[in-house]
Design a protein around this nucleic acid. Structure first.
Lengths: 386, 386
DNA sequence: ACCGTTTAATTCGGGCCCGAGTAAACTGGG
DNA sequence: CCCAGTTTACTCGGGCCCGAATTAAACGGT
């Protein structure tokens, strides 16, 4: 049996996130909004002020009573670096304490072969370049595949051909700042918890639609990782025992029906002309042209996806789902049937399930990676964790 | 936003549970087995000894080093009462600290009409009867339907025709001991966490098969409740959009295909002669006679059930499933196909999914109800919570 | 100017968990 | 017989959270 600290030191970060999005607030207001005791806020803000992350503004009297002392986020007091690893490139973001991106870059590195060497090089360069301005306090790495955030080991990443790679430990040895590694979707889920859905919901799902399908699960404000960090394999939900073969060895996994390449294949088979290297944009184009086969295909895919999500929603009783990922561009065509079928498949008290999609770029995963650090503010609050 | 205490005071109970099942152990051994700090064990055992729940045995030297002081559970130091509410009867159990049942009873009361009055009467009688022996320290009530354990409100129980019934609060007012109310499957899930699967696993599912299908979810040693305690509605997983109408208003819910009455219906339609009031036992009899239609039906049901469970397993990455409920008698016929299809539908790292079924009686839900109290040992440790 | 009222923030004690250091109580060897 | 090694248990300080009581700083009215 292993136990994980309760909220981690999430609350300190939530204070930062709240002030980042809502502007300066008094301590009492912070306590109320976060559902946390006043004493807790006093204690945490004391430290955050000490660390230079917060600043007291002039007391502001409003009506009767002792005037509140608004606290303002010193957004640039610390920066963290987030790297998203993809097969053929890296995306990097430098993120402020309030989760906002101050800088981003994209490198055509293929790191599969020697990840530690290349990532070290990239991160070192970035840290050095920022030494004189706001220094980088930590690095988060988001990888495709199963990664255990606790140990920093990438258990299995088919696409990168990594098996049990101790990425976190090796990077930590080579770098002067703390390093956290996690699955890319969970990284973005963490970002959602801090700066997105988490502002309204304690429990929610994050559906990642791309070539694979992933599901981030947040329950009681905790990002669930499952055994060895292997949770969230929504794409391998067994749907149709007679379905197409899947890379995982089974048949009829959800992603063999509604994954990105599955949709392209099925469109082709339905007679739609698509370039061999076509991506979701080509499907969008076809849909915009009004090709009935594509419209039907996407609508059906949305329905199936919605039904599967409804199943998870019923079991976990969450009230909100956020959709992200490369294929979000298809949402105008997937969305209506998705939402309808998800709502239909859900039990009565959950009928008001909220489904949210917002513009998404793949920098988001990199930002998520940075948020892994922010979610453990302890890692960056302490002067030097190294 | 609302926050729930981390483990609750689960650890004190886990110490009791451990000593109950493993016999007397030294403090160091307890700490190691529970994955908890030695200091924590010292502190908790001090209190438990103070409360009379534990007793120090004579130090026992084994090899070098300071001899360990084994701690023994004083099993009968406290009893708790668990009541399972069913449509046409009540099941009650009196449970010791180690989770063992010391007494049980069954009453043909139909409490749907005036639950508070009847339950108060029954519980009062039981408490009074036990006043002179080991007193009852608390009462747990397991109800069918959605119940919020936090507030003690039964949100919705179709079968009892309850809507927003504040059962916990009203019983607490009428009774001299703490009262906890929860959904019946979650109650049994709590029992599993303390005394069953929880001994080996931090994360697991409990599949309840009966007329309805339920799913208890334990992640990181926490029983998940979802929004308003409405989690676990596995039976309403949308499976077949063309399927039979379900009581929930949707079509093709899982339980319209493999629920108890669904199986009976389908057997009848396949030409099997069954009494109008037949239960799962009749299906077992038919299967034992070797009726091919029934065998096929049950095998198919197992396959479907396994596939749905595999989906949940993939998303949450749990490594174990326990099966309980009225229909467990069908397991010899459901089980093989269930296990096969569950394993088949699960991603590689979870292939070693353990599926456990053990003899089950409906007293188990009543025991689960009692375990709700044990899981909050604070409720019974303190001299009088009232 | 001074009093209650109101709201904000802090302190205090408590619960809960941990790790590091320390004390306790044994073993066997010199 | 005492010492070094070993294992157990406890103490202490710390992190983290809370609720209740307390202090702080405004207000309005007299």
């Amino acid at each position: 049996m292993t136990r994980r600290p309760a909220h981690g030191d999430l609350i300190r970060t939530e204070i930062l996130a709240l002030l980042g999005s809502a502007g300066p607030l008094g301590r009492a207001e912070i306590a109320a909004r976060l559902g946390v005791g006043a004493a807790t806020v006093t204690e945490h803000t004391r430290r955050l002020i000490g660390a230079g992350f917060l600043r007291e503004l002039a007391p502001h009297a409003s009506g009767a009573g002792r005037p509140r002392v608004p606290l303002e986020l010193v957004s640039d007091a610390a920066h963290v670096l987030g790297i998203r690893v993809a097969v053929d490139h890296l995306v990097g973001t430098v993120v402020r304490l309030d989760g906002r991106i101050v800088d981003e870059f994209r490198l055509p590195e293929r790191v599969a072969q020697s990840p530690v060497r290349l990532l070290t090089k990239v991160v070192r360069a970035e840290i050095d370049a920022r030494r004189d301005t706001t220094p980088v306090r930590g690095v988060g790495v988001a990888v495709p595949g199963m990664a255990d955030p606790e140990s920093g080991v990438v258990r299995l990443s088919g696409i990168m051909d990594w098996h049990g790679l101790p990425l976190g430990a090796e990077l930590a040895r080579a770098l002067p700042v703390p390093v956290l590694v996690d699955n890319d979707l969970r990284a973005s889920t963490t970002a959602e918890l801090l700066f997105g859905m988490g502002r309204e919901h304690d429990d929610f799902l994050v559906l990642g639609i791309g070539d694979g399908l992933g599901m981030g699960v947040v329950l009681e404000r905790r990002v669930q990782r499952g055994a060895d960090g292997s949770s969230g394999e929504f794409g391998h939900l067994p749907v149709d025992p007679e379905g197409p073969d899947c890379t995982c060895g089974n048949r009829g996994c959800l992603q063999t029906l509604v994954g990105q390449s599955a949709l392209l294949d099925r469109a082709r088979r339905a007679g739609v002309r698509l370039a061999p290297d076509a991506g979701p944009a080509a499907l969008v184009a076809a849909a915009e042209r009004g090709e009935p086969a594509v419209l039907r295909l996407l609508s059906e895919a949305g329905t199936l996806l919605g039904r599967c999500v409804a199943g998870v929603v019923n079991v976990l009783a969450v009230k909100a789902v956020k959709v992200i990922g490369e294929s979000h561009v298809l949402w105008p065509y997937l969305g209506p049937s998705f939402t309808a079928s998800a709502r239909a498949g859900v039990i009565e008290p959950l009928k008001d399930l909220s489904v949210t999609v917002s513009p998404w770029r793949d920098t988001e995963h990199a930002r998520g990676a940075a948020c892994l650090l922010l979610a453990r503010s302890g890692a960056i609050t302490r002067p030097s964790a190294r």
